[in-house]
Design a protein around this nucleic acid. Structure first.
Lengths: 348, 348
DNA sequence: CTGAAAGCGCTTACAG
DNA sequence: CTGAAAGCGCTTACAG
């Protein structure tokens, strides 16, 4: 039970081999739990490694084996509710599988996105990649393919890549359908800008779902009612202020995310406009705060999507020939206190 | 301008050397921008690397140089406001310096924490480490030292490590001082549990600050008024429910985080207890939502702390002999609408 | 079950 | 300014 100085960071596989009286090959096999080693040998090796405070050199290991045991995740943001939750669940699953996560945030910058692909930042550095919520362009898909590792997408799809997402189009249809079902005819939209240089998937799909739901209800679209925001609380505030200033106000507003809805609600309160009496509001997400604020929304399972993406990648690593799967998680309408039928004789 | 097949992931430094008609040594020097290479050579090498789609092998490079260009961040959570914001700023600075971030979350698990240190998960894998908000035990400090790389702490301190934080004790004193200054004498606390196995720094310091502020105001402490919660919205709700059920309610409550305060406020609203008329509430953080909700709080600069930690590590990497710095960021009282003087003849 | 040996792809003195 | 060569620390056929 003698333990060498704890600072023994320096021991190499050769030191362990020497101490255990075996070859480095046997040390490698023993420590990785491979077959073809007698129990006696393995025990001696393990003990020697412990005594020397041996820690494998990941660089050497990956140079030789070609595996890094690391997975990169590319995310537009990390300090936003959706991304934090999805990322947390993703990392948790991977950590349990003894894999590491390399975090690469775009911080909302198209330039960072360009650099990531142009400078081959991920090349040979990871065994797999997760891309969050970005609609990939062809050259990006090509660049990812050149990495020659499994790729998974969360929140969007692309042929040949694993993907997990909700049906954003359907979720938006559900939300707006709830509003039309209540009798609303003049329905606003607060959504991500289709012109956002980062090209997020959700805003495009959700806006399309909004328009489609209106059409299904026989309601003519009115571009004036569609206001661009940036998926932040502040953006929701500004957008709702704009909507409130319209000559003909909407009687209900579909907001593409709960966080923007929080901002919208805030403006309403300050303006003395009551929800749902004067104006109905529905979001998407089922953010932790939504229950608190009593916001009607379409809930999506966020952590589940992150975990599913991790499992897909794990399976792909296990069997490189596995066909890319595409999983769509369910959403559900959660009716709370911010939606109701319009007041009769509405349309202020 | 001829470009070989874009899938050329395989080119090695030897291939580039051959194509450029130079040695691998010159390729290495040219591509890393080192001196001692003629401009003509460098140009030819760069062009050859481009043509071949060369990407360096990080494993080989780090095996030889001992540098990984990667920094690990160990965080208790990633899907919480504070951690997401700090992490985002930290990663952003590092990315600009062409370094990578390895994300290791504890997911609130003491077992994950134990494993991290016991299994030497970070050994030789990173050039530096950031630890978020954990009060380190001696054996953990020893383990980190054995890594033989610069270590920075965010939200706590330890001798010999870089650190950046706010003064949690002082922040709590400021918050409670605001309450006593308003005339409150019966002041509750909603705080993290001192028994939390993860041993966060903030709850210990903030509770101590609370007690100290009471003492300074000549108010006898009452343990019944100190309720443990878990820094979540739900925890804030449960804690406030408990406080409301007390025979002698407090007239004001200091909540150790804004998120818990949101929950507390929610319970108040449902119970028909008005803030600040019936009960004052003050938090710590200045969360994005706090302005929205009009919560009085003590603001702390979160992104700034993350960025400062990154810069400290960058400087340490630059000069390994640099003495560990310890920076304390300022906090400031932000008076909004949830605090006021107690009603005369209060103490319900 | 075990070991000798090659080799992964770089970087770094060293020599010129 | 340039190159030949050693060597970082592993893993993996290959042979026995």
């Amino acid at each position: 039970m003698e333990r060498s100085d704890a600072g023994g960071t320096r021991a190499s596989i050769a030191d362990v081999a020497r101490a255990a009286g075996v070859s480095t090959a046997s040390v490698s096999r023993s420590l990785r739990g491979l077959g073809g080693v007698s129990e006696g040998t393995r025990a001696r090796v393990v003990q020697a490694a412990l005594d020397l405070g041996y820690a494998i050199s990941p660089g050497a290991s990956s140079l030789r084996s070609g595996r890094t045991r690391t997975i990169a995740v590319v995310t537009p943001f990390i300090d936003r509710w959706f991304f934090g939750r999805a990322l947390g669940a993703f990392e948790s699953v991977l950590q349990q599988a003894d894999l590491h996560v390399l975090l690469h945030s775009l911080h909302g910058s198209p330039e960072a996105r360009r650099r990531l692909f142009a400078e081959r930042i991920l090349h040979r550095r990871v065994d797999a990649v997760l891309i969050m919520c970005l609609k990939l362009e062809q050259h990006e898909i090509d660049a990812l393919r050149a990495l020659d590792v499994p790729v998974a997408l969360l929140g969007s799809h692309a042929a040949d890549f694993f993907s997990v997402a909700i049906d954003d189009f359907a979720a938006a249809r559900t939300a707006v359908g709830h509003l039309t079902g209540l009798g609303h005819r003049r329905i606003g939209l607060i959504g991500g800008s289709p012109a956002d240089p980062l090209r997020f998937t959700a805003p495009m799909e959700r806006r399309a779902g909004y328009r489609d739901a209106l059409k299904s209800a026989g309601i003519a679209g009115d571009r004036e009612l569609e206001v661009d925001a940036d998926y932040t609380i502040g953006g929701g505030e500004r957008a709702m202020t704009r909507l409130l200033g319209l000559p003909r106000r909407p009687t209900a507003v579909f907001v593409e995310s709960d966080e923007m809805a929080f901002g919208a609600l805030r403006v309403l309160r300050e303006a003395g406009v009551r929800a749902p009496d004067d104006l109905s509001i529905i979001g998407i997400d089922d953010h932790e705060m939504s229950q608190l604020i009593d916001l009607t929304t379409v809930g999506q399972p966020v952590a589940e999507q992150g975990a599913a993406a991790a499992h897909a990648l794990l399976a792909a690593l296990e069997d490189r020939s596995r066909a890319p799967s595409r999983v769509v998680h369910p959403t559900r309408l959660i009716i709370r206190g911010t939606t109701a039928a319009p007041r009769s004789g509405s349309a202020a």
